[in-house]
């Protein structure tokens, strides 16, 4: 078959709208995963098993099951419980929750990397628990895990097309719609595929650079 550049041109306005939605999902999803992941990681350090065990189980469960099914779950089940969200909100929540179980692992590794003497010094000074976390431990832990967190943002980017299944108009869904309207699938889908590589590769190079700068100091 022939590659049709005019089909690419036709798709471009839709494509840019899709990029915008994808970036929106990515930004909001990242925020949720960064915040919630931190909550998980701190809960995993709680002093009672009544907290650590359920949190660990929930994390394992979410991390070891497909995001796609989780998306369906939220999309179909939440309305059954009379919770009405837009598809975009549903998608962002699902992807943020899914990735929070990965960022939790990253934070945990960072927290474990803070020398035990820092905790002891905080105890010796009688610092309150919250102060110990936010003034002493986390500032040291987070700096070193920034590149790892960045890598998960890139992973998340590559999972955003899944939101198409619940109708979020990100890049892939725009390509599908364009294909359905014009019967030209090849160009839109190829454009989207190339776009992912063009965004993800430089981003991953940046993370590798950051890793060298921040972690190995």
């Amino acid at each position: 078959m022939e590659w049709d550049w005019s089909a690419v041109d036709d798709f471009m306005p839709e494509f840019w709208d899709g990029v915008l939605t994808t970036l929106q999902v990515l930004a909001l999803g990242s925020l949720i995963s960064f915040g919630l992941g931190l909550v998980w990681a701190m809960a995993l350090r709680a002093r009672t098993r009544f907290i650590t065990w359920p949190v660990a189980l929930i994390n394992e469960f979410i991390r070891n099951t497909p995001l796609l099914i989780q998306l369906f779950f939220f999309f179909f089940v939440l309305p059954e419980w009379d919770v009405q969200f837009s598809t975009l909100t549903t998608g962002v929540l699902a992807i943020g929750l899914h990735y929070s179980t990965y960022t939790a692992q990253v934070y945990r590794a960072g927290i474990d990397g803070v020398p035990v003497g820092q905790w002891e010094a905080a105890t010796a000074l009688n610092l309150p628990r919250g102060r110990t976390w936010f003034a002493v431990i986390l500032p040291q832990a987070i700096r070193r895990v920034i590149p790892a967190l960045g890598n998960y943002v890139i992973s998340m980017l590559k999972d955003t097309p899944m939101l198409a299944v619940i109708g979020v108009l990100e890049m892939l869904q725009r390509a599908r719609q364009q294909g359905a309207e014009t019967f030209q699938f090849v160009e839109p889908i190829t454009v989207v595929g190339v776009a992912f590589i063009l965004i993800a590769y430089p981003a991953s190079v940046l993370m590798r650079f950051l890793e060298r700068r921040l972690v190995q100091q």
């Binding site: 394992e60 945990r108 890598n151 992973s155 993370m207």
Partner: peptide, 23 residues
Amino acid sequence: MLKKVDGKAVDPQHAGTRARSAG
């Protein structure tokens, strides 16, 4: 640390910087 974190299901560096991302 990332390398050794607990064998339970997913080691973050393996799932993360290696497996799931372009890092």
